[in-house]
Amino acid sequence: MSKDLAVQSSSPAPASQPSEANIRELVDAFYKRVDDDPLLGPIFSSELSGRWDAHLAKMTTFWSSLVLGTKDYRGNVQEAHRPLGNIEPQHFARWLSLFLDTVQNRYEPAAAVQFMEPALRIAQSLQLSKFGWDYRIPDTQLALLASLKRLRRGEPAGHETEADLPDRSSGAPFPVNVTGVENNGS
């Protein structure tokens, strides 16, 4: 990863609205975590060697296009990920866990949903593309996506409310029933 990437030593106060600036901070913080992650780091490092800065700029444009509606992103998510080999379900689970955690720590709930819902939809699309139409998306991943959609629309279906989302106030990793990976407390 680029040595120029500045990582803040303390977490900023959660943002109430996404902006270009805080999206760039989100992308930088998230990919710093990815680079440091023992499961994902080697994959990203080998794929992005010498290209981290360009990737971070592209991801900032991507998330700005999705969340702010800037429509500046030009690319095909499926094609960009097609050449990646050795990607398994646990890689998707770990990516989602790190991303959802980073978003939740940087945005207030209403703003966080704007990132979480597309992340879950994109992950599902990439999982089906990678593993085939017979691949079963983890039920908890589907349930979280459905909950986020209802929250975004202000439609608490049945008795579900924001309280039905995992309590992450302690900053602990998402539990296994959200990400599909074991949470051994580390």
Rank of each mutant, 00 (worst) to 15 (best):
A157V: 13
V181I: 14
K32C: 05
S19V: 05
P83H: 11
H81A: 02
L84E: 03
P166W: 01
N184Q: 09
A143P: 01
E20F: 07
A6Q: 13
V67A: 06
R153M: 10
Q17R: 06
P83N: 12
R106K: 01
D36N: 08
L40T: 02
S147D: 12
S147M: 12
F30L: 09
S46L: 07
N177I: 01
R33D: 10
D134F: 11
G41C: 06
G154V: 09
F30W: 00
S45G: 10
Q127C: 12
G41N: 07
Q127N: 06
R136I: 10
N184G: 06
S129C: 07
A29P: 00
R150A: 15
D101M: 06
V7M: 03
V103D: 00
L98Y: 00
K130E: 05
L98A: 02
D134Y: 07
K32F: 05
N86S: 15
R74G: 09
R51A: 15
R150H: 14
L68V: 09
L128K: 08
S64T: 13
Y73S: 10
E155Y: 11
E155S: 12
A80Q: 12
A172K: 08
N105V: 02
K32G: 03
I137T: 13
R153Q: 14
Q78A: 14
A54C: 03
L120P: 03
A29G: 08
P14R: 15
E47N: 13
R51I: 08
T70N: 10
M59V: 11
F174V: 00
L48E: 03
F115H: 05
R74Y: 13
L96T: 07
D37T: 03
D37N: 09
L96H: 01
S11T: 05
L48C: 04
E108D: 04
I43P: 01
E47A: 15
D134G: 15
G50Y: 04
H91T: 03
P12L: 02
G69R: 11
D139G: 07
V178G: 01
D28Q: 04
E108Q: 14
L96Y: 03
L39V: 11
R94E: 15
E182A: 14
G41P: 02
F99A: 15
P12F: 02
N86T: 09
R136E: 14
L68Q: 11
D4M: 09
A80T: 15
I137H: 05
K32V: 01
E47M: 13
S49V: 09
F131R: 05
K149V: 15
F131H: 02
R168D: 05
R51G: 06
F30A: 00
E155A: 14
K32Y: 07
G85C: 09
R51Y: 10
G154D: 10
R51P: 02
K71R: 15
S19K: 00
W63T: 02
D4Q: 12
K149L: 13
Y135C: 08
A21L: 06
